[in-house]
Design a binder for these strands. Structure first.
Lengths: 332, 332
DNA sequence: TGCTTATATGTTACCGGTAACATTATTTAG
DNA sequence: CTAAATAATGTTACCGGTAACATATAAGCA
């Protein structure tokens, strides 16, 4: 392994000067720096991160911790990661982990990250989040609103998103709707449900009791629960079922397809997320776009900036969602 | 920051003993180890990775480098990552990067990884792969066959996969087929095309010239190219179009839907990958499963084992694909 | 020209661990 | 019961950088 000392010897300067050459903000004559770069390149020198980290206490690693690697937003993962990379200085590594898999916080997390972006879907992550806080690890939580005023936070206005959808459904002339919601442990579930409830009273829509179902954000439950809804007698069966995410909506499509029920003529369906498949389904899914990649991107920017200069005021930002009207809701 | 010396002082032992307590293979009395663990836990000690890495030259970071974060296998990303985590000791971090984004190899890669899993789709990655080789960084290349006998390699038998599909299509009574293939720079494109060609001659199928189209593995080209195929007069138009991946097949579905062409009655379609949406499409897509998560998982296992004890014989393994018959190919 | 200030570079201690080697405590065996 | 073997722990140099401080060189100015 070639070290800073060898470069120094060849260049006829001290180690410190070489060190300076590799530290952008250090003061050094540009000409010297270039000469050192040239030599370093020739003999294949690259700074040893461990040695550097030992003294600076930096790791040049940013962590993205998701509630679980497998979730309803797994289709977003590549978007999230590439958006993060766009906002991340090249000398940082991006480590992707699942909160649900951490066995030993000390081993996995402590002393390993300069900062962590928590993409959190559930209050179950709070324990982890507070451990980060206690260890003074710079952190931004996205996706879910946190009420702790000391935690930087970016989230989306899910309630408003669903409300927009319900208003639209009402305008299309629907009178009875069903709702396939997410698991109760997810905060988004609560906000989306509130959106549905608010929307229904505001528009005098009937939210059919027997057509309120609890799913797990996966397509299989979407399908199964939609099958149950389709068993309902036609007079009370809803004409539109709103699903708490796209994956369940796609499952619901499948249930209709198997029963020969035409979408949207005989059954309208909406989703939430606007994931990459929703525009490709047949018919294309009317849904609500969820600014997940934007949250990740903004979150990382904030994180980097916090690492470089700690902030005194909290970031607490809500990002808008947007109704994406496609083909899965009929005009009645 | 609490160091090993403080733990040592409290425990009344030397630093080395504490160090041993935290190194699983070190020889130390179990009783002493437990006592040290207890103290460490009390005062919140965790080993400093940088200091440790400085002397051992280990980083406890594994890299996964994908040709590009955005590719036809972006839907696999969460599968790949979680499969990798399943095979990765907890003290390793997993860094996810795109080969196409590396600006400075020295800065981003050198001295930063104990080993790297290269998920490679294209010969364009070779430059990167050979740099890893030159720097003696342990590496396993998956997804694409490499002919260099010094590089550990796991790939899938794409040609056989497509061949199985063509045989099946022929058995269903089809006579004329079309082919929407991938970009020429991808190795898989070549192997899949060869599978199609072989299958056609073996089964006396006509591969319609005007229905051979070059896509980019994205759903949009799948749609556009299928539209072109649908323009063909009915007498020469293929009755089945094989798509080189699922995403393009889904795009092709969309083209048919918009033109009111029934799948599979009026047009049969197949894909490749068996990604998570192929079972959910309407109709469900007949496709070929691609053992990407298995490759990632096996690759990581090999990598870890290579890091722990360097291997002298090369790993060169082909994994089988499997025809998944669903609903998108009609019997004629 | 000489003195002050700014710029560029050098000297040295130290960051927090680990490995080699040395030493002491404990077993084992004759 | 003692010598030899084994287990457990200690001492110390060092891994490859950086930061604080010291010094040398160049530039600015009366």
């Amino acid at each position: 392994m070639v070290t800073i000392r060898e470069v120094a010897k060849i260049a006829g300067v001290s180690m410190t000067t070489v060190s300076r050459a590799f530290n952008p903000k250090a003061v050094i004559k540009e000409e010297t720096r270039q000469r050192i770069f040239k030599i370093a390149d020739d003999i294949g020198y690259a700074p040893n991160i461990s040695a550097r980290g030992l003294v600076t206490n930096k790791k040049f690693v940013i962590g993205v911790f998701l509630s679980s690697i497998h979730t309803d937003m797994s289709t977003y993962l590549s978007d999230i990661i590439s958006n993060i990379h766009d906002s991340l200085p090249e000398n940082y590594l991006l480590s992707v982990e699942g909160i649900d898999r951490i066995q030993s916080f000390d081993q996995k997390v402590k002393n390993r990250f300069d900062g962590i972006l928590v993409v959190s879907q559930s209050a179950a992550d709070n324990q982890f989040i507070y451990k980060l806080k206690n260890n003074n690890i710079p952190m931004v939580v996205v996706l879910r609103a946190m009420d702790n005023p000391e935690i930087d936070n970016i989230y989306a206005d899910d309630e408003k998103g669903i409300l927009d959808a319900i208003n639209y459904i009402a305008r299309q002339g629907h009178k009875r709707i069903g709702f396939i919601e997410g698991p109760p442990s997810y905060e988004n579930t609560i906000k989306r449900r509130r959106g549905v409830e608010l929307g229904c009273v505001a528009n005098h829509l009937k939210l059919v009791d027997d057509a309120i179902k609890i799913g797990d954000f996966g397509p299989i439950t979407g399908k199964n629960l939609m099958e149950e809804i389709l068993e309902l007698p036609k007079e009370i069966r809803p004409t539109c079922v709103v699903c708490a995410n796209d994956d369940m909506a796609i499952g619901a499509f499948r249930a209709c397809y198997e029963k020969g029920i035409k979408i949207p003529e005989e059954m309208s369906i909406t989703g939430f997320d606007d994931n990459s498949y929703s525009k490709l389904s047949t018919p294309a899914l009317t849904t609500i776009s969820n600014p997940i990649p934007e949250m990740a991107s903004l979150g990382i920017k904030r994180l980097i900036s916090t690492i470089e200069s700690p902030k005194k005021v909290r970031l607490f930002q809500s990002l808008p969602t947007k109704l994406i009207i496609r083909e899965s809701v009929a005009k009645i």
